[in-house]
Amino acid sequence: MPEVPLLKVNNLIKEFPLGGGLFAEPRARVRAVDDVSFALSRGETFGLVGESGCGKTTLGRLILRLVEPTSGDVEFDGQHILALGAKEMRLLRRRMQIIFQDPYASLDPRMKVNAIVTEPLCAIQNLAKSERKKVAAELIEKVGLRAADLDKYPHEFSGGQRQRISIARALCVRPDLIVADEPVSALDVSIQAQVINLMADLKKEFQLSYVFISHDLSVVEHISDRIAVMYLGTIVELAPAVSFSDSPRHPYTAALLRAVPMPDPHRKTEPFPMEGDAPSPIDPPPGCAFHPRCPHAFERCRVEKPSLVKTARQHFVACWLNNSRGLGIE
């Protein structure tokens, strides 16, 4: 019998209305997430990359039901979370937590670290003050801060330290899944490595699964088991991290890989294969959303939208080039 995946996302769609009011119909709708499906097994780290505005943050919040989807389904450990009532949902939240991108915005400036870190716990049970402090002290040391920091306010910490507090808060209820929404993007490069290593250590210790969202491919590659590339709300390529950089099959992935800076001054720079900005999701191009920027686009791409198909073991690509042959990019 196959194992039930920890998280399963089926045909998730989220549209945001633009404009409109109490009685007025919205002027347009933006498809932030457009028919996304994937599954995450226990203990896995699932990387999600893409440009700003491609819908990765929205997808992360849909998974946790912080945003209600327009259609589609999310299964967490076999439970259809969208069917749960408010109370059941709150109880389920102890098993799924989130770490946010901006450590300056995600901590309440008027709360002490002690209260912040134990907040998810207080949502499910009433804890005595001393009990709370004990839990908080244990957590805060796990993430590399001192118990003395518990009585401080968030503004007394640096970005990296704040992100550690965020991580401690997420760990507080011993969740199974943590959605990390660009957890290191707001940090200095040197701090990024520390935080990522901390997250990797904690994963082992607490048997966590991550959905790791980032726009930085090198960060995602480092920590993920599998990687999905998003473009304009859809997953265009999904592959194990190991085979990812060696054999990109979608031209967009190839371009992203090319954009990763290499610490090698002698490496010859090739002309960048992609031009322009991502098109507006309000008015996406017909066919494959990537075709206006794609160097390999041909007639079919302009009219018909490719779906995600299996091209190799565990490797899925949504590109017409892959229907018959590989991309031919080294």
Partner: peptide
């Protein structure tokens, strides 16, 4: 603000969020 989303993700009910996070701010 994001810390409200964080509280929601933590499973705090909306009126409790109003009391614990919005009012003090």
């Amino acid at each position: 603000r994001e810390f409200i989303v964080a509280a929601r993700a933590a499973g705090i009910s909306e009126w409790k969020i109003a009391w614990r996070h919005v009012l003090p701010n």
